[in-house]
Amino acid sequence: MSERLQLREVGDHARLVRQLDAHHREHHTFWPYTAAETSGPITDSPRHCAHWPTPRHSPPVRAGHYPAVPVLAISGEFDIGTTPAHADTIVARYPNARAVTVPYGRHGLLLGLSPAANCAQAAMLDFLANPRTDVPVDCTARTHRMLGRFPTTAPLPTGGDLTDGQRERIAAAAHTAEDALALLDPEAAAPAASEPGLRGGRLTITPDGITLDAARFTDTPVSGAVGLDGTTATFTAPGLELTWTPFRAGDFTQVSGTVDGQGFAVEVPPAG
């Protein structure tokens, strides 16, 4: 690093920001993300500490000088601010420590209100009441299958006495509605009020759920209303009604409803 981080002086913010940016670049602080990707265009959180007072140098404690007290570090798998690697760093310094990564968990897990956050909070409370490293932490925030790319196939549902055209309509609506419900995922951050569909159209959050306006998750545009009532999701459009249990990461989704006035129950494989 060409410049070392210096103690703060009056009017020194610009220099400290420059030094901090250089530090992030050299040490890949937020790998595999960039500093900009961790905060977006609004918060600029990676630069917050450039404005903190630094009255004196605080040398790190040398390895082997940390007490043998029980330490439990819980982090979210997808936390890009304080990553699981940070928890591993802490645990490596204490002789009686354990790091736990919550699958699909995000930043602020111990401060949230989601099911995964409630689970992590209960585990931490158990640890604080009886400090030990074998506290059960069986938490997960996995509410969907991680594809890692834009989907290119939307498999047709199986089961039921349906025509090919009806299966295609059910598949397009089910895949599009399920994707739209990511906006209301209890493990996700607060969503935008409206956003474009993956391949066109628009999704808009309403007091009753989500409105799809020619939203195209597949090649077929879908318009209708997506509702969420506890653990039950619905999709309603002229001639088509769907009901399913959302936020599951299984190999298929069981969907029931009516199409052209005909009742059905099918299994919809995930998009791939």
Score class of each variant (00 low, 15 high):
residue 137 V to H: 09
residue 236 T to F: 02
residue 114 S to I: 03
residue 14 A to H: 12
residue 24 H to A: 03
residue 8 R to K: 11
residue 34 T to L: 09
residue 202 R to G: 10
residue 56 R to Y: 14
residue 127 F to K: 04
residue 127 F to R: 04
residue 39 S to H: 12
residue 158 T to F: 00
residue 29 T to A: 10
residue 192 A to S: 12
residue 121 Q to I: 06
residue 267 E to A: 15
residue 89 T to Y: 13
residue 152 T to I: 07
residue 134 D to K: 04
residue 48 H to Q: 11
residue 134 D to R: 04
residue 205 I to C: 05
residue 49 C to Q: 12
residue 74 I to Q: 07
residue 29 T to Y: 06
residue 84 P to A: 03
residue 102 V to C: 07
residue 244 W to E: 03
residue 220 T to Q: 13
residue 217 F to H: 15
residue 4 R to G: 06
residue 175 H to M: 07
residue 107 H to Y: 11
residue 118 N to L: 13
residue 69 V to H: 06
residue 184 L to Q: 05
residue 231 T to A: 15
residue 243 T to V: 15
residue 130 N to L: 08
residue 202 R to V: 12
residue 42 I to R: 15
residue 1 M to E: 11
residue 16 L to K: 05
residue 113 L to T: 14
residue 136 P to Q: 08
residue 22 A to I: 08
residue 120 A to E: 07
residue 156 L to T: 02
residue 250 G to T: 15
residue 15 R to A: 12
residue 189 A to Q: 12
residue 82 T to V: 15
residue 164 D to P: 00
residue 71 V to A: 07
residue 192 A to V: 11
residue 180 A to N: 03
residue 266 V to A: 03
residue 71 V to L: 15
residue 24 H to M: 14
residue 24 H to W: 13
residue 46 P to F: 11
residue 248 R to E: 13
residue 49 C to F: 12
residue 44 D to I: 12
residue 264 F to Y: 05
residue 105 G to T: 05
residue 139 C to Y: 08
residue 119 C to A: 04
residue 147 L to T: 03
